[in-house]
Computed example of a mutant assay.
Amino acid sequence: MELRHLRYFIAVAENGGFARAARLLHVSQSAISVQIRDLEEELGASLFDREKHKIRLTYHGELFLQDAKTVLAFADGAVANVQRSLRGEVGTLTIGFFAGGTGTCFPAIIKEFKRRFQDVQVSLVEMTTAMHYKALQAGTIDVAFTRPMPPSDAATLHFEHLHSDRLNALILKSHPLAKKRSILIRELANERFILPDRNYSPFAFDKVISLCADAGFSPRIGATTMVGSGMAALVEAGEGVAILVRSSTILHHNELALVPLADRTAFIDLVIAWSPQRENPVLRSFLELALKMRKRPGLSRK
């Protein structure tokens, strides 16, 4: 039994005869008759009462008609799902991100993608930027909002720039520089620095070291932490200063001030990264939307 047997049978049943069904299906009447006869032989039951040149369904035909419609509906649905999957409209997508570094573009992109692709199951996984690279290569996540990749990973992963965040000095409000509109990092040369742990945030760590080197000094490292909230706590405890992006979580510390760095290169990039070996239609749909939305005002720095 093939799907065409069911289509021919339903056409005859719903149109009251072989002739009308043949015209609608653009096949010969004899072809439909042969297919229906084969179907009846396979089923071992007559589906139509053909007496007095009138065609009507038998009791068995009435039962079979409902099942035939159900089977065709499932088959048509399966075809439609494949077509939708080819267009990236159905499937799953796992997105990695890290707290405090995604800015306004991340929630805007996620919200818009879920609005447009309501049949894609989206999962969000928070992890450190160092974990993003391994997770992308292993296929644990499909795409990541992260920092630029180290050279060892750049060969196997692709990334696109989303926007750049200005870096700021996080200092005590009692610090002599706290009331300035902006400062240069060389003004912090005599301070101890609270840095992100390089094992978890290699790009952020290296960025601060590079800024200090460009300003002609090597920072005295007082401590390292895994997350921005830990850096804020140590700064508030008087353990040193920190360099990071603006965050509402940081600003909740009443004793701290966030002063923008005026250095020309005092920016840190946010990128979207993925493995080209694991691309699929859903991922391509997400990337297309994300890269289009990064050009909107307010989502990127010119």
Rank of each mutant, 00 (worst) to 15 (best):
residue 42 E to H: 14
residue 46 S to Q: 15
residue 172 L to M: 13
residue 58 T to F: 15
residue 46 S to R: 15
residue 178 A to N: 11
residue 11 A to K: 00
residue 34 V to T: 13
residue 292 K to G: 05
residue 78 A to M: 10
residue 121 Q to K: 15
residue 170 L to M: 09
residue 199 N to L: 06
residue 256 L to A: 06
residue 126 E to P: 10
residue 227 V to Y: 09
residue 47 L to H: 05
residue 56 R to M: 09
residue 166 R to S: 07
residue 90 V to H: 01
residue 213 A to H: 14
residue 125 V to K: 15
residue 172 L to T: 05
residue 19 A to H: 07
residue 207 K to I: 13
residue 211 L to Q: 02
residue 184 L to T: 09
residue 128 T to N: 03
residue 200 Y to L: 14
residue 275 S to H: 04
residue 226 M to R: 10
residue 283 L to V: 09
residue 264 R to M: 06
residue 268 I to H: 01
residue 106 F to Y: 13
residue 93 L to T: 01
residue 84 R to H: 03
residue 40 E to A: 12
residue 144 A to G: 10
residue 232 A to P: 05
residue 15 N to P: 03
residue 129 T to C: 05
residue 157 L to G: 11
residue 224 T to A: 10
residue 209 I to A: 13
residue 290 A to P: 12
residue 37 R to Q: 11
residue 167 L to H: 04
residue 101 G to M: 03
residue 135 A to T: 08
residue 150 P to V: 11
residue 71 V to N: 02
residue 27 V to N: 01
residue 38 D to N: 13
residue 194 I to S: 06
residue 83 Q to C: 02
residue 240 G to C: 08
residue 236 E to S: 13
residue 81 N to E: 14
residue 68 A to Q: 05
residue 60 H to Q: 13
residue 94 T to D: 04
residue 147 R to N: 07
residue 257 A to R: 12
residue 285 S to F: 00
residue 36 I to F: 00
residue 99 A to N: 06
residue 18 F to L: 15
residue 148 P to F: 10
residue 175 H to C: 03
residue 290 A to T: 14
residue 105 C to R: 08
residue 65 L to E: 04
residue 214 D to S: 09
residue 71 V to S: 01
residue 75 A to F: 10
residue 58 T to R: 11
residue 121 Q to C: 11
residue 255 E to D: 06
residue 286 F to V: 13
residue 268 I to Y: 00
residue 202 P to V: 05
residue 21 A to Y: 04
residue 170 L to N: 07
residue 213 A to V: 12
residue 12 V to E: 00
residue 19 A to V: 04
residue 297 P to V: 03
residue 35 Q to D: 05
residue 256 L to G: 11
residue 266 A to L: 08
residue 27 V to D: 00
residue 47 L to F: 00
residue 159 F to D: 15
residue 233 A to R: 04
